[in-house]
Design a protein around this nucleic acid. Structure first.
Lengths: 345, 345
DNA sequence: AGAACATGAGCAAACGTTTGCGCAAGCACA
DNA sequence: TGTGCTTGCGCAAACGTTTGCTCATGTTCT
């Protein structure tokens, strides 16, 4: 027995297919009795409407596209979870693709999703925002013309491109202030992937924080990284070699911080006594490191939800202003007062 | 300017739409010149075929459904990544939904994905395999009748349901043997979520491992858990209270192990001196704990790829026998020789 | 030279919905 | 009783493809 269609129901109910269609979508001009009869019949036959056929005529798939840089990154995973929950609540499907942190793959993935006629696109941690400008995203019945793209953790303003992000700069600056208040004068920064807005903004915030606390920014205190465990792991040696030696480190994310923590433990560098470490993201694991990681909470699930909300707003033709959420410092055990006399002063 | 369709091309090339369609899919009965002309025109117009329309007539969406228990679990994320990569390579889209470890949500998600006419379904860590038996998954043009379901880390054999998993029991048993060889006589086990096959199999393997090494299984040495950080964290107190006190613990997964590690560090219980800890999954972070975690490697990406391969095989009508991969113990620093004289014996 | 066949292309149906329009019957109003 | 509005439903087009069939032309074989 094949798939039961609206026509089968029509035949059995002795009505036209259009009547069945209207009955099932609660069209006002269908008599209550007919509706009841048809609904019952549909239920009984186990009728499930063909989303594909529906999409073809309406031009909407009721599906959102998500391109994520890498689900393996706990931050991304948490955001994705928020996106999924919100999409499900709004009865939207989720078509997923991964960019593997590569701009080319990102844009390619976006194109593929658009080919599948997603109603909207959400990009978690874009690395190539400017390329959405020329991405053809016209749709057959498109409401506002193009399918909306919402960039998560990127502020790129362009028609049809929306933005949901955290106040990375503010949070990073606050983290530096915290360290400064603990007495640290030499604060290093392990940067994140180039191309990402969040990396750039956190760097900016780091510098702002230094300025705010009258600390002199030293280029050599900034280490390159990509937001991965290895970054922190490898950073320790560089930190140890610095003159003056930093007593605190702000990391691009928790992953880098955890790498650093592991390296410190291995090298016998006491945290926080010899080195204070601050992460970013507050991934679940950060509460379980040794010592527990002081970090900046990002409202990950909320960011995901906001992205979906923004996308749906844009779809509805409503205004969808940029969303900026603020972080909050989670004080745990990886930070402490500066124990070393400042080598320079 | 709206979406350019096959008809627009046909008009411009002065041919029929069918010719355009055939030209674009390299049908043999189209002259090379025509094909070239049409292909060029399509390229120039930026033509992108409507997957929706195509799906309607072919009955295939070229899309796989994935229901994951929780992307936030690093194991799941890694597997998902493998699935995504393999699907992309095969030119398949990925429709994603999350079950949040809830059987009801799992089956509901599966139904939603099926409504979107996914060609196949991959379930990462199913908790309700038996319910796929009665899930209506007939398709209009279905090749083999029903859309294939491949269960990842579950062995449930039923027509149309395929299985890709790891040899959980064998690996768990091997882990116990390792601990036994290190001199441990009292080995505890923190179990995983009930309902999951992997949890059950690892438990079985644990018991087999005990038997194999002539250790007596004690019910009180088995703690309940759900494969989460908190499990390990909370387990420490229980372990400490046990008589005889276990000197080693096998955990359902790395997450639980990391929770335990954190708790041990906080309580001043030396690992591995006072307590050896073995995890499961070998998530990336497990190499960066303090001490680094001894664990069982699961070929996560390979599992994901195998799931896609199996699904595609089933779709092609080829035989798709169950896949069983074997794990391998990764020896790191959280395990060591038993230092305590056995209290009993 | 006739038959059989290969080549290149078009016609039209089909996929399963949604929806604008038309139409008949019933009703209220003047 | 005629006019106009409402209610309930059907007709048919449309969405953008794919594909079985048909058909004309050219080619090769006997």
């Amino acid at each position: 027995m094949a798939h039961v269609s609206i026509i089968d129901i029509a035949r059995l109910a002795q009505v036209s297919p259009s009547t069945v269609s209207r009955a099932l979508q609660n069209h006002p001009r269908i008599s209550p009795e007919r509706r009841a009869e048809i609904v019952a019949l549909a239920e009984q036959l186990g009728y499930r409407p063909s989303q594909v056929a529906r999409s073809l005529v309406t031009g909407q798939t009721h599906t959102l596209g998500v391109v994520a840089s890498d689900v393996t990154d706990p931050f991304v995973a948490e955001v994705l979870k928020g996106v999924e929950a919100a999409a499900r609540r709004a009865d939207y499907g989720l078509l997923m693709a991964m960019s593997n942190r590569d701009p080319a793959q990102e844009i390619e993935a976006a194109a593929v999703l658009l080919d599948h006629q997603v109603d909207g696109l959400i990009v978690i941690s874009s690395r190539a925002p400017e390329r959405y400008r020329h991405l053809p995203r016209t749709r057959a019945h498109a409401v506002g013309g193009a399918v909306p793209v919402v960039l998560l953790n990127h502020d790129f303003s362009e028609a049809g491109v929306y933005s949901v992000r955290m106040d990375n700069a503010g949070a990073a600056s606050a983290a530096v202030t915290l360290l400064s208040q603990l007495g640290h004068r030499h604060i290093a920064f392990i940067a994140g992937p180039g191309g990402g807005q969040s990396s750039h903004a956190r760097m900016t915030g780091y510098l702002q924080g230094l300025a705010l606390n009258h600390l002199t920014p030293l280029p050599e205190l900034i280490l390159q990284g990509a937001g991965m465990l290895e970054d922190g792991w490898e950073a320790l040696a560089a930190l140890q070699a610095m003159q003056p030696r930093p007593t605190a480190v702000l990391c691009y994310n928790d992953l880098a911080a955890m790498g650093l923590l592991a390296a410190a433990a291995k090298a016998g560098v006491g945290v926080p006594d010899a080195l204070s470490v601050v992460g970013f993201d507050n991934i679940p694991l950060s509460a379980y490191t040794v010592p527990a990681l002081t970090t900046v909470e990002q409202p990950k699930a909320a960011l995901g939800q906001a992205a979906v909300r923004t996308c749906l707003r844009a779809l509805a033709g409503e205004p969808a202003p940029p969303v900026v959420m603020s972080g909050q410092i989670i004080l745990r055990a990886s930070t402490g007062p500066c124990r070393l006399p400042s080598a320079v002063g």
